[in-house]
Computed example of a mutant assay.
Amino acid sequence: MTTLLAFEGALEGEGGRGDGTASHRLQSNVTVFSNSLFSDISIQWRTAMNTPNPYQSCIDACNSCAAACNACMAACLKEDDVKMLGRCIALDVDCAAICGLAADAMARESEMARHFCRICSEVCLACANECGQHSHTHCKRCADECKQCAKHCLEMIN
């Protein structure tokens, strides 16, 4: 509003009639434009919110997998023999990162979503194989989530 008022003053001083007519026309045009713009954005937003994302089940699987990987990594770091779990921890970090990236790409309906999902499925399977070798409950849960995520990602790209 301050910018608009300053601009109105400049119009009156430079070629305006001094009666506020030019500034009133400008203000009316800006108001109509801004109302139209916000209306269009609002309609697009509501339409987007009412339209289900075609990737939603895969997004949910990726988010669940990322959470399981982060929990597994944190739990592995509290185990007595952390060194033995080094590869598990590293894959948990990689898997959580790519799952988040894939979920974000699908949420945006990015043209690259399929590519992220292909890589995500590969990392998830590697993480599932590693976590599946350990007897810890958190590793077993992580392996299960990774397998489900890989399945959803493979379905999405096929």
Rank of each mutant, 00 (worst) to 15 (best):
N63I: 09
D94P: 06
M84H: 12
A10E: 14
G15F: 11
V93H: 14
K147G: 00
M106W: 04
M1T: 07
N129W: 02
S28M: 06
M156R: 13
M156W: 08
L4I: 15
L85W: 04
A96F: 04
L101C: 13
L125C: 03
N35D: 08
C62D: 07
A68M: 10
I43W: 01
I59S: 03
M1K: 05
T31S: 11
A61P: 01
A71I: 07
V32K: 10
A97K: 10
R25P: 00
G18Q: 03
C127F: 08
N129K: 15
C139L: 04
E109C: 08
H115F: 02
A67F: 02
G132C: 00
V30D: 00
C76Y: 01
T3K: 02
C69G: 08
C72N: 06
L37W: 14
C99D: 03
S64D: 12
A126S: 12
S34V: 13
S23C: 09
A48F: 00
R87H: 11
D19R: 12
D19S: 09
S135A: 15
M84D: 12
M112S: 10
C62G: 05
G13K: 15
S110Y: 02
A90G: 11
S57W: 09
D40H: 07
S110L: 02
A22K: 08
G9E: 14
S36D: 14
W45L: 15
A10H: 10
E14M: 13
K151W: 05
I59E: 05
R141T: 14
T47C: 00
M49L: 13
C153A: 10
C131G: 02
M1G: 14
F38K: 12
Q27R: 14
D94C: 09
C95S: 09
W45T: 14
M73S: 13
E122I: 03
P54A: 07
M112E: 08
A66E: 01
V30F: 06
A143G: 02
A97P: 02
T51V: 01
S34H: 05
S42G: 12
K147F: 00
S121F: 06
L77T: 14
A103Y: 06
